[in-house]
Design a binder for these strands. Structure first.
Length: 594
RNA sequence: GGUCGCGUAGCUCAGUUGGAUAGAGCAGCAGCCUUCUAAGCUGCCGGUCGCAGGUUCGAAUCCUGCCGCGAUCACCA
């Protein structure tokens, strides 16, 4: 990194010129803003204390020192205490010639060692996947890709909540009102069918509650005392007792759900290395809790329930085992965390889970370290914000939940009609066209969601999400397709990429693009350190935008100087390659034609 | 009420460990296709960075208070 070189020498300059010690990491260096001449800028205000000179004088001295010491530097200028450094063109063209053919550019070599385990998706089996899950899945997938590019070995896992009272509600509803209905004979997607059962249960439950309330019972009591609720509870008991017929129905209905989920995951382009089922793992936290009790770390109340006291952390008490010995969510997470640790000995345990669970994960980490698990500090809650709709939050009761499958269908249709309108589909056969529409619509959706910082709540406006102009996925895809078409034409005319280091004039627009390409490895590192796909999204948009300006302003195939033309082709080729690489990190494919 | 988070252009979002004149897109207005894909490019319009203090050579960024919005504080997951 040339920045590092500059940084080190700048620190050295202070040392030599003013005999003061400045650590290289305290040198503030950044890209020069576009309105000034230069590539990198050093802010020299911090050095004035030791130089005891006017800003421009110190800047001048440091500038001269750097120019002497670093052969790649060409010039510098000083504006209001900012030292703008110009790196010579040969440095940039040399960088280009060395890297443009490298498909792996920007990515770190995989380091052998302990993996990162990342959990995402984590659906319940009583409802189809919706927009909230989509954000979760996209973030999880992209963070996994980014970490891989950063040299980590990554294990992608999913923990499916396949047991509990909610599934019993669906099962009960199926027995009562959907008997004999199956995905095959109704032609309804499995997860949707089970979701319908769940909704029906809720509706019928409301009716029963209304009757009880009319008889004078208060609402809270009524909700607990309906015949339906009692039946669901009873079914859960039977499930826990391994009742064969209940288990059979449970297996059948869950299998329907998984078939449905698979379709959705598949279309989203998402998969897992390992899927855990809560029905297999929900018991394993108990033993750890009992040990903690024995060791005196946890305590028992008179009713027999077991708790963690967190007052030392400024928090309250947390229940871990009920009086009847059954476990709660926290207990299960303690167990699955231990399970994962034992299986993989990961360097990090990531959980992509909504920010409404921030407190839960804080407590989980605290309890695990109380229990002596040193790896508790390696648990990272990749917390993401809610997706809101223009009318407010999604509410299943008000039917404002945006279904993942329908969302993708709608995006597809928009992509199709837009393409037809623009005449883009004319030369494509049916298969090619549908593949392209799928790629573009998913690109739009994924980019729309991933460009927002995960930590923040975001607004999902359906109209904006299907926009294909401006800061969007299709804009970037288009730029890639455009370059590809250019390269194809160049090839057919027998033009070659530049061989060696180009030594001619470099246009400012060309240099801008090269500088962006140069920063890609840092972008990946940053995104990995912050678990943030939005950093990659911002970068790739910048790159596409900058390239388009170059493309529009400077002709390539009509350039008569063949060296220049070849140089621009190399630059274009490299840009396309990095666009494709960065988009892959977001889980987005790019077309060669559109 | 306690804790945590958020508040930047009409709308959606960027804004690096505090640095130059706070940036994009959308929307609106005006232009650019006989020349490499116009899903593109150029220009204009648009800001009291919620408010008030403080720290600093310098604050959208750090601290304090206030206002507004959200999440959470379950023997739910």
């Amino acid at each position: 990194m040339i920045e590092t070189t500059i940084r080190n020498h700048a620190a050295q300059a202070i040392n030599v010129l003013y005999s003061a010690n400045v650590a290289p990491e305290h040198v503030i260096i950044q890209k020069t803003r576009k309105d000034f001449e230069g590539d990198f800028t050093i802010n020299i205000f911090p050095f004035l204390k030791v130089s005891r000179e006017k800003p421009d004088v110190t800047a001048e001295k440091i500038g001269n020192y750097l120019l002497e010491q670093i052969p790649e530097l060409e010039d510098f200028n000083i504006i209001k205490g900012f030292l703008n450094i110009v790196v010579g063109n040969l440095f940039w063209t040399g960088f280009l010639s060395e890297n443009y053919g490298n498909r792996q550019y920007g990515k770190q070599e995989k380091t052998a060692g302990r993996p990162v385990v990342i959990e995402y998706s984590s659906p319940n089996t009583n409802k189809p996947l919706h927009l909230g899950h989509v954000r979760n899945n996209l973030i999880g997938w992209s963070v996994a890709k980014i970490l891989e590019a950063n040299g980590n070995d990554v294990v992608k896992v999913n923990l499916v909540n396949d047991r509990g009272i909610h599934i019993c509600k669906s099962m009960l509803a199926w027995e009562k009102w959907f008997m004999d209905a199956s995905p095959d004979n109704t032609n309804i997607k499995g997860d949707k069918l089970v979701g319908e059962c769940y909704v029906r249960f809720d509706q019928e439950l409301k009716k029963e509650v209304a009757v009880l309330v009319a008889d004078g019972m208060n609402k809270d009591d009524a909700e607990k005392n309906t015949p339906l609720m009692a039946a669901a509870q009873e079914m859960l008991q039977k499930w826990e007792n391994n009742d064969p017929s209940v288990r059979e129905l449970w297996k059948t209905m869950n299998a329907w759900v998984y078939q449905g989920f698979d379709v959705t995951y598949d279309r989203l382009g998402i998969y897992f290395d390992k899927i855990y089922y809560e029905s297999d793992t929900f018991l394993i936290g108990k033993e750890i809790v009992r040990e903690g009790l024995k060791m005196g770390i946890l305590f028992k109340k008179e009713d027999g329930s077991i708790w963690a006291g967190l007052s030392g952390e400024g928090l309250d008490e947390k229940l871990l085992l009920r009086a009847d010995g059954t476990s709660v969510y926290m207990t299960q997470d303690i167990g699955t965390a231990q399970l994962r640790y034992d299986e993989y000995h990961p360097v990090k345990l990531l959980y992509v889970v909504g920010n409404e669970q921030n407190y839960h994960f804080d407590v989980l980490k605290i309890i695990l370290s109380m229990l002596g698990r040193k790896w508790a500090k390696d648990i990272v809650h990749v917390s993401y914000g809610m997706v809101e709709l223009p009318h407010g939050k999604m509410k299943s009761r008000e039917g404002t939940v945006v279904d993942a499958d329908e969302l993708m269908d709608n995006m597809y249709q928009t992509a199709e009609s837009m393409a037809v309108e623009l005449g883009k589909a004319d030369e494509l056969n049916k298969d090619e066209a549908s593949q392209l529409f799928e790629m573009i619509s998913l690109g739009a959706l994924k980019y729309f969601i991933l460009r927002v910082d995960p930590k923040k709540n975001m607004l999902f406006n359906p109209e904006e999400s299907i926009d294909f102009n401006g800061n969007t996925g299709p804009f970037i895809q288009y730029t890639h397709a455009r370059i590809h078409s250019l390269l194809k034409k160049a090839k057919s005319r027998g033009l070659k990429l530049y061989d060696g280091v180009f030594n001619g004039d470099v246009h400012p627009k060309e240099k801008e693009v090269i500088k962006l390409l140069y920063s890609y490895p840092e972008v990946i590192k940053d995104a990995a350190a912050q678990y943030s796909p939005s950093i990659v999204a911002a970068f790739v948009y910048d790159l596409a935008k900058e390239y388009n300006q170059f493309y529009q302003e400077i002709s390539i195939l009509r350039e008569e100087d063949t060296d220049k033309a070849a140089f621009r082709l190399s630059l274009s080729h490299f840009t396309a390659s990095v666009i494709s690489s960065a988009m892959e990190l977001l889980g987005i494919h790019v077309p060669e034609k559109m």
